[in-house]
Nucleic acid binder design. Structure first.
Length: 554
RNA sequence: GCGGGCGUGGUGUAGCCUGGUUAGCACGAGGGCCCUCCAAGCCCUCGUCCCGGGUUCAAAUCCCGGCGCCCGCACCA
């Protein structure tokens, strides 16, 4: 058995995770988390939350998984990730509607399913392979589609990323940030993608857990406070043909990384991964080639972790530019801008005279006015504007040129996005934590105390002579103090240690006969199996300090 | 989606080719005995042929379909 198989076997046997819906044969791309996996994932997310939300002062929000289609029309997902399909009712073959329509010279771009279905029927198109009747048109995309409400149902999707929930809340968040740029927001939640071929356990799921932050920055600086403090963090960078280790500050100043904000969050990502226990040498960042970039991104670095099958992407750090906010501005009609005060300047501007424009252009007056406002004022004379594909002449009496004081700069912020796949991170952490003891081959998960699902186990050396009740009593006290732990008196002491090692319990507290004599217990370190003897009154503070990483006891 | 391999207790496996005992073994889990520190031993107990259809007197075994897993290709926000 390879390393990955052993980890999967352990994960299932000990209750970290397993395939969903097993008794009905399962469904690809869905996994259940068991008791230990649930706790482990929560602990990983909690470290992420501390490092990103708390330390960086991000605004954490929670928005619906179910999102109206209009959001993804704006974001470009619907267009980029949906194909309309029809299935032949007699032979079962599936066809792409746009291809069927295009072959016959019919409109085929940007159609709704209803429009496409009407076009197909009107053209009397049948199955190209058997001539059978085609069924209903349905969008096949990487987004799961839904209908909300009964009559006149509203189309919606399960979100493929949490990010849109943040973008469409830009105004609320900007207000919460007291209208200061830069600021950021974050969401820990689920995303859904109807993957064509989910495989490899937790690595490619159709319903998955993500932690995403959207950092809104001034496009002129793309900076983030604290950059200097992390500029010395070394990053292993793979870009083009090159692979090198550079301090993030140098990578930014040499232009390998496009901005200080992006560099900062790459460094932060590395520190986060190390903090949960990924070995530094197993972390690298790979820059996307131009053709690899998502439709919204100008620059993306994947954070990758090395596992038995090679390097695996666990986080994506993208410069999404002003793409999303600009698109939502266009589709919603809301003004999604930030403003910074920067001295005072005088600007000449065109002010349309609506009293003249109105009668002159009637229903097009509003559009003409909007076009005028966006133009540089000419010295004098008539202005030509393009409206609705036509060129119109606006005479001088329909506008005036005014000089205004401007106290700063208004702009659509650019977005730096660190986006993490928690399921993949959890899997990588398990694989990198797994080892077998020399000689015996017993399995151990070397999980750090900060993420270990269980922090300590309380064991009587033998379950008699009062050792059991003593161990139980102290276990109860530890629980009351918030130490996630359990009591175990089943089987030999060695077996109980082995059981605990296998799920990554860092500390084992053993009550032996000496405990009854002098009030001390042994605390055993999972990885070295060394034991130290400490007085009972120091036990709980010592464990708490060791779990929090404030004190080393081994 | 295409091609190949595969699916047996909670886990790992034997049995399948060549249909025919009570589906074997190991680990595990639960109860008990015993036990002074790293999966000891003994007794008892628990639990399985992925789903559906077909062939047959008889199917874990042969055939068909589905679902799932693994590998490669394609896809991959």
């Amino acid at each position: 058995m390879g390393r990955a198989e052993k980890v999967l076997e352990l994960a299932k046997r000990r209750g970290f995770f397993w395939p969903s819906f097993e008794i009905y044969g399962g469904m690809a791309g869905f996994y259940d988390y068991g008791p230990l996996g649930t706790a482990l994932r929560r602990n990983i997310a909690e470290v992420w939350r501390r490092k990103f939300v708390l330390e960086e002062g991000l605004l954490e929000i929670d928005t619906p998984d179910i999102t109206p289609a209009v959001v993804f029309r704006a974001s470009g997902h619907e267009e980029q990730f949906t194909d309309l399909m029809v299935t032949c009712t007699s032979c079962g073959a599936a066809w792409r509607v746009d291809e069927l329509l295009e072959e016959r010279g019919l409109p085929h771009e940007g159609l709704s399913a209803e429009e496409a279905e009407r076009l197909l029927r009107e053209a009397g198109i049948r199955c190209p392979s058997c001539g059978g009747e085609l069924g209903g048109v349905r969008p096949f995309g990487l987004m799961f589609s839904l209908e909300v409400g009964a009559a006149g149902a509203k189309r919606a999707y399960l979100r493929p990323e949490t990010a849109q929930g943040i973008f469409i809340n830009f105004l609320n968040l900007y207000y919460q940030a007291r209208s200061r740029i830069p600021f950021g927001a974050a969401t820990i939640g689920k995303g859904y993608r109807n993957e064509i071929s989910p495989r490899k356990g937790l690595i490619r799921l159709r319903e998955f857990n993500m932690a995403e932050a959207e950092i809104f920055v001034d496009p002129e600086t793309k900076d983030w406070p604290g950059f200097e403090a992390l500029s010395g963090v070394p990053l292993r960078l793979v870009h083009g043909e090159a692979e090198e280790v550079l301090p993030v500050g140098e990578a930014v100043s040499r232009g390998i990384i496009g901005s200080r904000a992006l560099g900062y969050f790459m460094a932060k990502t590395k520190l986060f991964l190390e903090e949960i226990g990924i070995p530094p040498e197993k972390i690298r960042f790979r820059k996307h080639r131009k053709e690899e970039l998502a439709h919204y991104s100008s620059e993306t670095w994947d954070a990758e972790i090395e596992i038995s099958q090679g390097w695996l992407e666990v986080a994506g750090l993208s410069d999404r530019t002003d793409y999303d906010l600009r698109r939502h501005e266009e589709h919603s009609g809301e003004r999604l801008r930030a403003f910074v005060q920067e001295g005072v300047s005088r600007v000449r501007r065109i002010r349309p005279k609506m009293g003249v424009l109105g009668p002159m252009f009637k229903s097009e007056a509003q559009e003409v006015a909007r076009a005028l406002r966006g133009m540089e004022p000419p010295p004098s004379g008539p202005i030509r504007v393009e409206v609705g594909g036509r060129s119109l002449e606006v005479p001088p009496e329909a506008y005036e040129v005014v000089e205004e004081e401007v106290h700063g700069r208004s702009f659509i912020p650019h977005v730096i996005e660190p986006s993490f796949g928690l399921d993949r991170i959890l899997y990588c952490l398990l694989e990198n934590s797994y080892y077998e003891r020399e000689g015996t081959g017993y399995r151990v998960l070397a999980l750090r105390p900060n993420v270990a699902p269980v922090k300590a186990v309380f064991l009587p050396l033998v379950a008699k002579d009062g050792l059991d009740s003593l161990a139980r009593e102290w276990w109860r006290r530890a629980l009351a103090e918030g130490i996630e732990s359990y009591y175990d008196d089943s089987g030999s002491i060695g077996r109980r240690y082995a059981r605990a090692d296998e799920i990554g319990v860092p500390f084992a507290v053993t009550f032996d006969y000496r405990t009854k004599e002098d009030g001390t217990v042994t605390v055993r370190d999972r990885d070295s199996t060394q034991q130290v003897r400490i007085p009972l009154e120091e036990l709980i503070p010592t464990l708490k300090d060791a779990i929090a990483g404030r004190r080393k006891i081994f």
